[in-house]
Design a protein around this nucleic acid. Structure first.
Lengths: 158, 158
DNA sequence: CATGATTAATTCGATATTCAACTTTTACGG
DNA sequence: CCGTAAAAGTTGAATATCGAATTAATCATG
């Protein structure tokens, strides 16, 4: 059994680190979202654009895109439908596996990406990257990497 | 004007730190959510419970609760309605300011909190805190704190 | 002490997310 | 090969979120 006195409560230090991490994540997402708003994009839209624009032939299978953006298949499907209606991507069927579909970046999607990316990078710098010394950023990266790995293992199949 | 070559793109190091931070935030929230599921609570529910249970008389004004959980008033209002239906909190009117309402933890809410908290702390430890050395955690806290401050200023009034 | 501006909170409609059910195609085991 | 299981993706209904409009009470000041 787990009694109260057994529980290894967080120390003040730990509590503070934890809450700060939470606050930063949330506030940062809100801020980035606000900075993208003038371009008519959400964070989710933008992330899809990034993934597709970095991919071979600017296209990815729905499943792969879902995996790399850490979304459910259902959510991605709706998301792509919206972006398709907005003219940013289109679906293309896959020859080698007739169950499959590609999400493909349209020319308009590509142009949007090239136009918005500099502003988004500026936003990420202003509200995150440039607020660290390069040593601190390096330390952040190296201490966070094992956490990411742990969490990826933990979830296994979505 | 902002041409492409002007843009201070992220270096590989920066890119990696940034994406790792993003992944950790998202994966961690999903994981905590999963760990709370057996108790019938969401992360949002739990955070409300924490805030109320730490507050004077286990009650907070709606506005204060919205501010401390970084939610919009609208969202909080819905959230509290749901938790009220679940019997975890109740609304009480405020004598000193008849516009205002308190969200108050019910006995059931308090019991739920005491029962769930040990498991949640364990989850936070397992998937986050205990994956750092105490020096790394300290470094994390101290480098993230200014970022949180910056972001809080930036948003000003929700 | 009236009235115009603020503040507290909710409501409503539009949009987004989740979860389970479903369709189609491919993979596997005997 | 046949049948069943697994995988890719979509759909629809239920739920959650967002932002603007709304209501009601307080503040501020001329």
């Amino acid at each position: 059994m787990t009694t109260d006195s057994d529980t290894p409560w967080l120390t003040d230090q730990e509590q503070c680190a934890w809450r700060t991490h939470l606050d930063v994540s949330r506030l940062l997402m809100h801020q980035l979202e606000r900075d993208l708003q003038p371009f008519g994009l959400t964070n989710n839209d933008y992330e899809i654009l990034v993934n597709l624009s970095e991919a071979e032939d600017r296209r990815l299978r729905m499943s792969d895109l879902a995996a790399s953006t850490l979304q459910s298949k259902s959510r991605l499907s709706h998301q792509i439908t919206r972006m398709e209606n907005a003219g940013l991507v289109r679906r293309e069927s896959c020859e080698s596996d007739r169950r499959g579909l590609y999400a493909v970046l349209t020319d308009e999607g590509w142009d949007t990406m090239r136009r918005v990316a500099p502003h988004h990078v500026a936003s990420v710098r202003k509200h995150f990257i440039d607020l660290f010394t390069s040593e601190d950023l390096q330390a952040l990266r190296s201490s966070l990497t094992p956490v990411a790995e742990h969490l990826r293992k933990e979830r296994g199949g979505l």
